[in-house]
């Protein structure tokens, strides 16, 4: 079971671009601790969260999607784009996060994260991608999406780059879970 960080793929333009979304829900365990209610004494202000609590007072919970998991969501969108370029014959792994710049916009429950990944380089050895992550708010659907992050990420085809190391025959990267995601998103 992989932790799937995409709900739906909206666009998949072969070897060019992938757009995918992930809804943020208060039901996710990870948001319960990030950030839980607590004392203001030992808490530094965080992006968009409640600040200015008097010492010794309690601040409310502030659930927000961690940036590290937003990067994972982008990695899955860009990884699918890279794998799809070769009809999922290559085992594609995240090789390098070149840059990840976050704007400070907070992905809170009830919003939607949209990943747009584009391939800037693709060859036998792997790919380079760059893209953006945006936040959509269904309470204000006509508003422009807010830029959440810009990311540059590289992927490696491990069978091409790790000669001498043995990997399983089957493609353990693109499991049925990913194939199901593509199928239910109506992309091929």
């Amino acid at each position: 079971m992989r932790w799937l960080w995409l709900d739906r793929i909206l666009e998949l333009d072969k070897a060019k671009r992938c757009v995918a979304i992930r809804n943020v829900t208060a039901a996710e365990d990870v948001l319960h601790d990030h950030f839980a209610a607590g004392s203001a004494n030992d808490t530094k202000p965080f992006n968009g969260g409640p600040t200015g609590c008097a010492p010794g007072t309690e601040h409310p919970a502030y659930p927000v999607m961690p940036n590290s998991l937003i990067i994972e969501g982008y990695a899955q969108a860009a990884g699918i784009l890279t794998g799809h370029a070769n009809d999922f014959k290559e085992k594609v792994i995240l090789a390098k996060i070149g840059k990840a710049t976050f704007t400070g916009v907070a992905a809170t429950p009830g919003t939607t994260i949209r990943h747009t990944a584009e391939i800037t380089h693709l060859d036998d050895r792997g790919s380079s991608t760059q893209g953006k992550v945006e936040l959509l708010d269904s309470a204000d659907p006509s508003a422009d999406p807010k830029l959440l992050a810009t990311i540059e990420m590289m992927f490696s085809h491990i069978d091409q780059n790790m000669q001498g190391l043995e990997f399983p025959e089957e493609n353990f990267v693109f499991t049925d879970q990913f194939m199901d995601l593509l199928a239910r998103s109506g992309v091929e």
């Binding site: 090789a95 390098k96 380089h121 060859d123 050895r125 792997g126 380079s128 590289m154 780059n161």
Partner: peptide, 9 residues
């Protein structure tokens, strides 16, 4: 090691 691939790209 992976940086050499990045530099190459």
């Amino acid at each position: 090691s992976i940086d050499y691939l990045d530099i190459s790209f």
